[in-house]
Simulated assay, not measured.
Amino acid sequence: MLLAALPALAAPLGAAGLKARYDSLGPQLASNQFGGPLVLQSEEAQRRIDGSVYAVLDHPFAVVTGALVDPAQWCDILILHLNTKYCRRTEANGETVLELRVGRKVEQDVDSASLLRFGWRPPTKTADYFGIQMTAPEGPYGTRDYTLLVEAVPLPGNRTFLRMGYGLAYGTASSIALQLYLGTAGRDKVGFTRQEPGAQGGEDGFVGGMRGVVERNTMRYYLAIDSYLRSLAAPPSERLEKRLASWFDGTEKFPRQLHEVERDEYLQMKRNEVRRQAAAR
């Protein structure tokens, strides 16, 4: 079920809105901290935080939309995220659901990981626009109203302008649990947005707290999509290793925000998790 009232940053822009956003972000896409045509934005309001990555992809629009139209393909994308332990497509009451298990940054049993159930709706697809949005009403530690969305429009030169959005809401109980995490294991973790001096965050001026958490996950999900797309040029037997290596290498470009485990640890963990996921289909 669609959320009743999504904040502006979480709501789909549509074809005209996404094209307008591309025009308005022109200077930022041309010059930014990411070393390529990519912009990350986030917004926090009323215990909800949303992030969006806007990026120009060197992939034709048809290739991008073809890779994102099937829920089974999305499980192959989402499993790349460090914290995704398992993903499967299910049917419930005539609706398609993506069941994710999310957990620790090391290997763990599926049953010990937290469940996220994203409702899947058929994407909007026209000659000049693609859009898909998934929502999960409940998440771990009392978080709720998760949103995953992707929008894309074609650009000249067989390129595509893509928006990847991720967001969640949290209440009092989840705020306490998250503050405990942010005061211990997550104490030194930051996002990508520079902030005013004195605000909560790292000594190097990046946003911290829950906004930092959402920015990091938004980037990780974007890198999963980008890595999946990059792998499609390889023979099918080589695609898994290509996308795993691409995802890890992508995160290592931003070690301050995204480094968590060493390369060999990540690759072996994900090979095992992908095998487990494939065996259950």
Rank of each mutant, 00 (worst) to 15 (best):
D58H: 12
D58S: 13
H59Q: 12
P60R: 09
P60V: 07
F61D: 03
V63T: 14
V64D: 09
V64R: 09
T65A: 06
G66R: 05
G66E: 11
L68Q: 04
V69S: 14
D70A: 10
P71S: 07
A72C: 03
W74G: 02
I77S: 01
I77N: 01
I77A: 01
L78P: 00
L78F: 09
L80K: 02
H81S: 08
N83C: 05
N83D: 09
N83E: 07
K85D: 03
K85R: 13
R89T: 04
T90I: 15
N93L: 10
E95G: 04
E95T: 14
T96S: 15
V97D: 00
V97C: 02
V97M: 06
E99N: 12
E99F: 01
V102Q: 01
V102E: 00
V102D: 00
G103W: 03
R104P: 00
R104S: 06
R104Q: 08
R104N: 03
V106Q: 12
Q108L: 08
D111C: 03
D111H: 10
S112P: 01
A113W: 02
S114G: 07
L115D: 05
L115S: 11
L116Y: 11
L116E: 01
F118S: 01
G119C: 10
P122Y: 05
P123C: 11
T126P: 04
T126N: 04
D128A: 13
Y129P: 05
G131C: 13
Q133G: 03
Q133A: 12
M134E: 06
M134D: 06
T135S: 08
E138V: 09
P140H: 08
G142T: 04
G142F: 06
T143N: 06
T143Y: 14
T143M: 13
R144K: 15
T147I: 09
V150E: 01
E151P: 01
E151M: 05
A152N: 04
P154V: 04
P154C: 06
L155V: 10
P156N: 05
G157V: 10
N158E: 14
N158R: 10
R159W: 05
T160R: 05
F161M: 09
F161Y: 06
L162G: 04
L162S: 06
L162K: 04
R163Q: 10
G167V: 00
L168S: 02
A169T: 02
G171Y: 04
G171A: 14
T172A: 14
T172N: 07
A173C: 09
S174R: 08
S175E: 11
I176K: 14
G183R: 11
T184G: 02
T184W: 07
K189G: 02
K189Q: 13
V190P: 07
